[in-house]
Design a protein around this nucleic acid. Sequence first.
DNA 1: TCGGTTTAGTCAAACGGTTTACCGCTCGGC
DNA 2: GCCGAGCGGTAAACCGTTTGACTAAACCGA
Lengths: 344, 344
Amino acid sequence: MARTTITDVAREAGVSATTVSLVLNGRNAERFPEATRRRVHDAAAALGYAPNVLARGLRTQRTHTVGLISDRITTTPYAVAMVEAAQDVAREHGRLLFLVGTDGDPAVEADAVRALLAQQVDGIVYAAMWHRPVAPAAPLPAGTVYLDCFPEAGGGPAVVPDDRAGAVAAIRLLVAAGHRRIAYVDIGEDPAPLASGLRHTGYLDVLREAGVTPDPALHVRSATATAADAADAVDGLLALPADRRPTALFCFNDRIAAGAYASARHHGLVIPEDLSVVGYDDQQLIATELDPPLTTVALPHYAMGRWATEVLLGVTPPPDAADGVLRMPCPLVERGSVSPPRAP
Amino acid sequence: MARTTITDVAREAGVSATTVSLVLNGRNAERFPEATRRRVHDAAAALGYAPNVLARGLRTQRTHTVGLISDRITTTPYAVAMVEAAQDVAREHGRLLFLVGTDGDPAVEADAVRALLAQQVDGIVYAAMWHRPVAPAAPLPAGTVYLDCFPEAGGGPAVVPDDRAGAVAAIRLLVAAGHRRIAYVDIGEDPAPLASGLRHTGYLDVLREAGVTPDPALHVRSATATAADAADAVDGLLALPADRRPTALFCFNDRIAAGAYASARHHGLVIPEDLSVVGYDDQQLIATELDPPLTTVALPHYAMGRWATEVLLGVTPPPDAADGVLRMPCPLVERGSVSPPRAP
DNA sequence: TCGGTTTAGTCAAACGGTTTACCGCTCGGC
DNA sequence: GCCGAGCGGTAAACCGTTTGACTAAACCGA
């Protein structure tokens, strides 16, 4: 199992290690006659030579590896697309990806950063599993790109979903369908996730732009993101008399939308005829499986993961926004849960 | 940004690089007096010294990195727990994890293996996202551990879920509750996944052991794993007259179980009173969100991921089964979708 | 014939650690 | 006074590759 080294190839080809290195890396390759180049290539192929990238990295100070560090890797199906995108971009550019999860523990995170630096990674993507400000536990090298989060202290290229714009698109869809009484079924977690406020802002903006005075009673909160809690939160709204009951629900996420479906069923309301519903996140297992399939706003995890890694590798320019934060659009995915309200 | 080297530390501490290396690695550390050791440690701390693991790996031939290679990393929430487990074990043992996905492309896979070997990884975990035999596209080094798959050619430590035993547990639960007419709602994909046959075998074994003659009419197939197709497949069963209708359904997976819920609702049957349902996979977003919550069999992804990585690192002994394959138990997760059948 | 240029390479020094072998000194025992 | 053993530590080789400096031989024009 002794791996073959450049010296073995040199011996086999009857040249020096320098020549092998030069030829194989195509540096000044034209300095060598075709015959020599062939001999080197043939010898390398025959011996199955693959350069030891440790030795190379030691010499060149570039390892062609990148690190992806994140709080929870993948405990939810949520953000795996970000990891996948990072891995895809890395592969496309001949890089290898170190994956490390910190489980939200600052000590672990600090260790992870040290370990990655000791590995001489060419760069680090610092990812969060949900859109929020972060305060890294250990100093990150210059050039670190923030994914689905941004440094509390400001600066640094970063990419997050444009939650406000996503809500705007969702509410505009409902308004265009003719809805006026639109409820926002928010999440009641404390502290409120950043996305909660941003989506609320977008909701309010569109209502005002449509000349609708927002009714605070139509802003309800589900204690958690479980369908059961969400159903409880929605029950109150759907129990209202028909002329005060909302005709459409904008849900903080798809799980809450699933709860809304349950509540609607319980109240004998048919979606979308009696009640239109829009979700957020576009979680495959929920949005496509609900009946009718859920119209929702997709979080652009894959696109964000790609962008972050491409910026890290320098193949995409960093954002020119003053704060260095790119807000990635959240596409509206229209399925079957929105229709015009019933004529009164 | 010039990283501090062992030489810097040596100069600061007034000793040679050799001494620093020996002291910091605790090798023969007792040969040096306490005072010297302190000086070295203090200097290292003051300078924030972290050894360059490339240089170390070059010399020691061990990199403390492992590679995890898999067909689809994470396209489904499915197997992310395997990745997470591998990452956890790696971290616990001071290793760093390379993650590479091949998207099922043999050329990409061969490249990935070469890249990992060039990185001098200490070992490789070869993972599949669903239980099946595999034929690696490039020769894998000795010691490679197979995760959720096993080499077609045989051999090699490998771990897969014990699908037969999982089905046995599920059907025993139903039989113990008093069910006799139990249907198996299989998946109709071609070729059939290995798990499909294994679970069927377990299903048949328990029926026979309970003295029930399996009724082939109760083995139906859903064209795909979507809830809609599953509902179609189940509709035929539930339309049967009450005395021939199954009182319980064993579903190939949770998505199919979700379809069964829809069909049951459509036929006015209440789960579990009129119809007991057991799923497979224990997908969080489905099993816990259904109403009532779904009793199901969990795939031990996390446990398998841990085991594979621990075997790779040599902290867990390889299986002594002749074929080198460990069949990991699939725990039965009892929720609310099973009850005794209605008295006839 | 001779100096200069091109051709076709090679040498040796890094890169930053680990490891083997050895060294100078002191001290105790005989 | 000599030997051997500990003590405290270092020098140098080595891991595999890249790279800047260098060179022997061939060629070439004057």
